[in-house]
Structures are given as structure tokens and as C-alpha cells.
Design a protein around this nucleic acid. Structure first.
Lengths: 202, 202
DNA sequence: GTCTATAGTCGGATAGAC
DNA sequence: GTCTATCCGACTATAGAC
């Protein structure tokens, strides 16, 4: 007697993750039903519960996995001692990493409010770890005299917001390549934090 | 014979808008039911349909109202001829205006995907009108030699993303006042786009 | 590991009384 | 303008067969 249908392929787990990321990014967590995810994967809704205890945990695991990937990728990159070089590396890394995972990035910003408070705290802790890396670079640059930044925490938030914004408009195949975009943003970041040679109007 | 309950006050319309903005911001459009909005207002769900034909139109009207308020407030402010002064004014205006309406701002960024395609186009058109104002300032500054910006469109997106990011972390009563934050951001924006006196490493 | 079937709940929107 | 009552559909999660 044959199985009726469904994947039975042994790779349903990853397919659930992929389908959930895409659907959550497109429609939002609350608007996506377990049935839709199941249809996308090619199984029935009930079968999803072999891979996640519930919908909330599915969202949490996606966000946690994304943040751990981010921190892992950063950890693999040796950080230059020179603050200016470290800042350039951070800038290019952030743009590239976020460009490669637009959907996970989108969810990580948009669906935080759909996490339970306990789950939210975990994700926020991971995010803070990432932000602290940029803040450390800025503080070292201030100490060395390379940067002129009165409020490293604010500059950290400003730079990250600016860089993450690339995902809202950049599309492959447009007028500019990603390396060109990286260079433009790096020049803006560099000028924004560098020690100025003379003051301007303002 | 007296009315059973409900507002009957003649101001239910504004209360519906306010409740919807707050609840959509807190929980997301899809996660908020008409019943929840009605409870917040103090009426029954059916009464809401005296004020909006459906939930989608309610969301659309909120976003459209917000964008029109934004453009209206800009239009009331006389724009300086000098590009640097115009940029400073834009920077401070953006931070202040967005600070005063955190919930509407949040919805305007998060709930775009829950608009029908036709409604989305309308909101995007209004947003583009606003962005074009900054882009014009940057182009004028490049023409006058005051700014060093190779890609005004990208700089526009970068500056707006950076400024809007204030809403994600700034809280009244913290270490810094809003005018202080304005000043810090203005200095970063100014340095990022100003014509540099000498080049750096990078 | 997946299926079918179903429980129990909640959703948007409408009809008609007052 | 608001109420009550309701239609009808969709949802999460579970139970038990295969």
C-alpha cells in the first residue's frame, strides 16, 4: 500500500523554515496560516507539528537562527585593529549580509512585536550583541582620535539604520552594483564619523 | 426609553481612528480584530461600519491621512534657499514630526504590505513626494558646490532611513533631549554630505 | 512522518430593531 | 448611530489511522 501524498523526503524541516520565512516576509506573521505554510511545503497542516510545537515557536526559531547566523558570520571575520578599517569592514559586511537574506532581515525587524515577551528578550539580547560590536569600533576610533563622535551609541543606531535601509530600495540588476552601493555608503559613513579638518556652517 | 450603551457622543469617528492607530501599531493590522477596535472605542463591532466600509479602507485612510499631514506640515514651512540651511531644516523637521506621531509612523512603514495594490500605489506616491523634497535639496547643494554627493537618490534614502531610525530608540525623559538629538543627527548628516576639505583613508 | 477529520475559537461583515 | 444576533468562513492545534 502506497503513501497517499506528501513529501516523505526527509527534508521537510528545512522546507518548512524556508516557506515560513518567505510567507511571513510577504504577508506578515499574523496573516499567514499554518495551512498556507503547509500548502507551500506540500504537506497537510497537521504534519507541520512534527517540526514545531506551535506557530509562535516557529517564528522565534526563525529569528533566533537569523541572529545567530549574523553573529556567527561576524565572528568568522577577523576584525582589523585600525578603527577606520574595522568600520569599513563592518559597513561592507552589514550591507552584504543583509542583502543576501532580505526576507529574514525584514522579518527580524517587523515581527518582533509578535514574539512573546520572553522570546522578544532573547532576540533583543542577540541584536544588542551585534550593535555593541559597532559601538566598540566607534569608541576605539574616538579614543585614537580618528573619529569625531560625541555619542557613540547614537552614531551606532544611526549607522545601522542607514545601512539596513539599503534593503528597502536596492534591487539586483539596477543601475548600480552592490559593490558600488557599498562604496557609496562607506564614504557617507566615513565622512559622518571622521574627525573633521575644519568646521562648517550649521 | 433610554439607549442601552455606546458612545452616542458624536466623536466616535476620531476615537475609531485613534484606537485603530494604537492597536495596529501595537499588534499589527492582521492581528487586530474589528471587535478589539470596537471594545477600545466603547461600542459594538457593528457600529464601526458607520465610519468605514471595511477594515482595509480604515487602514488606508489612516496611512493616507498621515502622509497628507506630513506633506501639509512641510508645505507650511518656508524652505531656505541655501541648501545647507534647507538640509538642516529638513533634518530637524523630520525628526520632530516623526517623534510626535510614533504610532502613525510605525504603521506607515510596517503595514504597507497589508494594503491592496491600488491603495499601496497611492501611499507610495505620497511618500515619493516627500523623498523628492530631500533629493531636490541635495541636488541643489551639489550644484552650488556645498555638498559632495555622487548619488543624490541614494543619499536621500540613506538620510531618511537614518533619521527615521530615531523613533526606534529615542524615549522622552532619557539622557538626551530631543533638541540635543536633533543637533547630533544634523551634525552627522552635515558631515556625511558636505564637500570635504581633504580626503581620508578608505 | 503524513494523512484525515475535527474540536473549539475567532474572524469580517451584514440585517433589522430601536 | 448603536445595538443584538447571526452567517459563514478561517484559524490553531489535536487525535488517531496508516
Amino acid at each position: 500500500m502506497a503513501r497517499t501524498q506528501g513529501s516523505h523526503s526527509g527534508i521537510t524541516g528545512p522546507k518548512v523554515r524556508e516557506a515560513a520565512i518567505r510567507l511571513f516576509a510577504e504577508n506578515g506573521y499574523a496573516a499567514v496560516s499554518m495551512r498556507k505554510i503547509a500548502t507551500e511545503v506540500g504537506v497537510q497542516a497537521g504534519a507541520l507539528y512534527n517540526y514545531t510545537p506551535d506557530k509562535q515557536t516557529l517564528l522565534f526559531d526563525l529569528l533566533k537562527g537569523h541572529m545567530e547566523e549574523l553573529l556567527g558570520a561576524r565572528a568568522e571575520t577577523p576584525a582589523p585593529d585600525d578603527p577606520a578599517r574595522a568600520l569599513e569592514q563592518f559597513t561592507r559586511f552589514h550591507i552584504r549580509f543583509h542583502h543576501e537574506r532580505p526576507e529574514a532581515v525584514f522579518i527580524s525587524y517587523m515581527e518582533l512585536r509578535n514574539l512573546t515577551p520572553e522570546n522578544f528578550e532573547v532576540i533583543e539580547g542577540l541584536r544588542r550583541q551585534y550593535e555593541d560590536q559597532l559601538e566598540d569600533i566607534l569608541r576605539r576610533g574616538v579614543a585614537s582620535g580618528a573619529f569625531d563622535v560625541t555619542e557613540p551609541k547614537i552614531a551606532t543606531m544611526a549607522v545601522i539604520a542607514m545601512l539596513t535601509g539599503v534593503n528597502t530600495w536596492f534591487r539586483e540588476g539596477g543601475r548600480l552594483s552592490l559593490p558600488e552601493v557599498e562604496e557609496i555608503y562607506w564614504q557617507m559613513v566615513r565622512k559622518a564619523v571622521m574627525a573633521s579638518v575644519g568646521s562648517n556652517q550649521g
